[in-house]
Amino acid sequence: MTEARAHILSKLNRAIVREDIGAGSVDDRIATHNTGPLPKRGQDPDQAALAARFVQESDLAGSDIQQLASRDDVPAVVAAYLRSKNLPPELRVSSDDIFGGVPWEGEPGLTIRDGVVDAADGAALSAAFAGVAETGTLIMASSPDNPAMHAFVPLVHMVILPESRISGNYEAVWADLRHQFGAQVMPRMLNMITGPSRTADIEQTLLMGAHGPQSLLIMVIGDL
């Protein structure tokens, strides 16, 4: 293995036509992480406009999206969504702090389970790290409080996204990520999710729910 490593690196070293200045320029580039061209779409004037664009783009991507005034509305929306998908009133919920203030007691028929999702779960609810208006993309950062598999194992995935966490573009989220996690540090899994799972592998027929969720409900919460 070390032999292969040395061999490959020396071949590269010999073959490279160096236009930049090697290691220095590499480390500079990583440290400065300049952005490329940023689309105008997503450069909206204020948070409300960004939220509106996020809603529009999520819808185009096939997500179901609801704008809620506060966390108080979550239980009823979740219960109704499960009914609309013919699923039992059961839900795996990640232990993110954001769920602390959700008044689940308002829907006594709803069974809430914590811990990590398993194959028997029909639906899971997790918290988004951010939303990106440009393409209606959710950014999920895995942690013990937000297991990544909640977004992939069940048939229905629901997400809470505070409106204040909607950014115009991905680059704004990376800046925020570095601020929160530190430079060059990543959550173990960082999932960018744009709509529910799909495939077009059989005669180009578009079908939702290939292996991941067939439905994705995004609840944008105005006031937290």
Partner: peptide
């Protein structure tokens, strides 16, 4: 597509 559904780091 604007984005593929899942991009994972």
């Amino acid at each position: 597509q604007e984005m593929s559904v899942y991009t994972t780091f």
